[in-house]
Design a binder for these strands. Structure first.
Lengths: 370, 370
DNA sequence: TTGTATGCGTTATCAA
DNA sequence: TTGATAACGCATACAA
């Protein structure tokens, strides 16, 4: 204790006491708790707790003293302890497959933002293939998240486990047939149909379809939509190849299409943009094919590079912002309703981005206006 | 109770008891706890706890009984409760600025994977601008993460707060001058120098430098490296413009360069790849400039599209995989050493990706061999 | 190896 | 409005 002739001003005394407290906490290798703050502020621990709960009843003077003590001690409530009793962790598990791919980051960024706006943080689970999801479910249960948004295909058993555990679940961009589960998706089947319709209307007859990998549900639906529509229209059966959703696959796919047909198809519908760009580059820069003069190329997703001059791809956009918003809303609503929320499927329409790599017929509405 | 003439087989009895337990848990609106498992397995709660702790001493029979009971009740230890006592949440905060940008997703995916391998999960904090970081620090303290990896510039005070709270911190790809803080980075200054050197050696004299936004430390270092090197080489002062790291900025920047010079520069060093591609597209497709014949264009990051045929950009690659690995290692080591880990800065060299948008002189070594 | 007892840091209930 | 007290679900020291 330092001795002074004149008594210390109140502020200084407070500062000294605060410093002593902090030293004690460090010495005893503890964390700063609400109890420390209470002691320093001269109130009960529950008073401190109430000060950090919005809308609790505390007198202004108590509040001020507590906040001052808390600030001095760098006190922040411990979310783990809180979640133990409130049963709310304010964390949401987000599961994604290829975060490094071009389309997921946008979804993730939007989700993170929308959830943050609702006071929830994203606990991220990345996985290389969709079938690895099983391995991380255990972690999801452990971490006591308030809910999960999963951009992967779940089995019936897996969905049931969510239900059994009462864990709110939103499936993102996967169409789980036969299961009533909350989901947000872009209508991939319709997207495939739409592209086929518009291309066919422009006079293309021989189609090549370069689908995504076999494991992908999204790929399967886009392919099915396009194929079904072409069949309906009575066009010659399209030639079908598959790729891995990557750039190299796009080039390989086009080579295979040409080999099987003996010539380039009139139009190539690619499973996603990256494949479409691989296809496009090969056609233009290696094979010297006139796109869209003699061959049209289109993709899905409208990822950023498709808007660039040198790409300017014809593609279909998924309204990612709205989808993320919907997912966050659905999940929040489930969390808040404690399971009484009815399962809902929110499907968004894809939006055609004309680009310059495909000849498209004008819309019916446009021709009327002409 | 169902009455049966013959006694139920042991398995069936167990199943019935398990079902009763589950029903009770639901009825009382509780969660399944280690205590429930203990009761069902006929052991103490601590025995259950030990069964879920790797390397604890439990007899095989106890272990088997506990695990059976646990499986029957879908029991999983509660990580929040555990973290309260172990002081480990097994969560790491990752803070990033524009997750939707092309370069971050790769970093995030790598980080998530490397951390998962070490038993840690990523709690994601996304932010629009680097100066918003301040707002999320409070959340970081709350969530009791074991450490943080931050891809944003921190102020001295902010770094000090991490130290004060004893929270392990790794700064990702930001060079915090004057502060001893663990960081992993790619040498952006050297990258700028390298590009200037190689372009100058190929005979380019009049440079345009299209830097990234003013707020970005990475942008500033790349620009400084290039400028300093050009000055050293005694070349005419480069014309300097800035952009926002986006595609549109690249085109705008080139227009501005041409306007200020009266003609295209010999070479444009762009602050990142996306701007470089914007610049390149404008030059080739709108202005009809021969790239790299009369003007060279180069960028930084080697994001995926730069490898595509129609882009094939000359750029510098950051060894993201190694950087993520280093960051995860640094952080784990800090966490495990309880603060005795000495601050370390791990700097990785950028790697030139020649591409086809810039004339580059052969390396000194190559010319010797000739 | 096993069980008992205690504490982690908070919120919630209730009486004052 | 305030304070005492009891959970929340687990891990750990200690005794058996």
């Amino acid at each position: 204790m330092r001795k002074t002739k004149t008594p210390l001003p109140a502020d200084s005394v407070a500062a000294t006491r605060t410093a002593e407290y902090k030293a004690a906490v460090v010495r005893e290798n503890r964390r700063v708790t609400s109890y420390d703050v209470a002691l320093l502020a001269g109130v009960s621990q529950s008073a401190v707790s109430r000060c950090f709960k919005p809308g609790a009843s505390v007198s202004p003077t108590t509040y001020a003293r507590v906040m001052k003590a808390a600030a001095g001690l760098d006190y922040i409530p411990n979310a783990a302890a809180r979640s133990l009793i409130t049963r709310r962790s304010n964390m949401v598990a987000v599961v994604m497959c290829h975060v490094a791919n071009l389309y997921y980051p946008e979804a993730l960024a939007e989700l993170s933002q929308q959830l943050a706006r609702r006071g929830k943080r994203v606990l991220l689970f990345t996985v290389q293939h969709e079938d690895e999801v099983e391995h991380i479910l255990g972690d999801i249960w452990q971490y006591q998240v308030d809910g999960a948004i999963i951009a992967a295909t779940l089995s019936d058993e897996q969905v049931q486990e969510f239900e059994r555990r009462g864990l709110p679940l939103v499936v993102f961009n996967r169409n789980l047939r036969g299961r009533t589960v909350n989901s947000v998706l872009c209508d991939q089947y319709e997207a495939g149909r739409m592209l086929a319709t518009r291309l066919a209307a422009a006079g293309h007859r021989q189609f090549g379809i370069m689908a995504g990998p076999d494991g992908s549900a999204v790929a399967a639906e886009r392919r099915a939509g396009a194929c079904d529509r072409l069949l309906e229209l009575g066009l010659p059966p399209p030639v079908l190849v598959t790729g891995q959703f990557d750039y190299a696959s796009g080039a390989r796919g086009l080579r295979e299409l040409i080999e099987r047909l003996g010539h380039p198809p009139d139009a190539v519908i690619c499973g996603n943009d990256v494949m479409a760009l691989g296809c496009l580059d090969l056609a233009r820069h290696e094979l010297g094919i006139d796109v869209p003069g003699t061959m049209s190329v289109a993709g899905f997703d409208a990822v950023e590079p498709t808007g660039w001059l040198s790409c300017n791809l014809t593609t279909l956009r998924q309204p990612m912002h709205n989808m993320a918003l919907a997912a966050a809303d659905l999940l929040t609503s489930m969390i808040e309703s404690h399971g009484s929320h009815l399962a809902e499927k929110r499907t968004f329409a894809p939006q055609l981005v004309p680009g310059a790599t495909a000849r498209l017929a004008p819309l019916a509405g446009a021709s009327l206006a002409a």
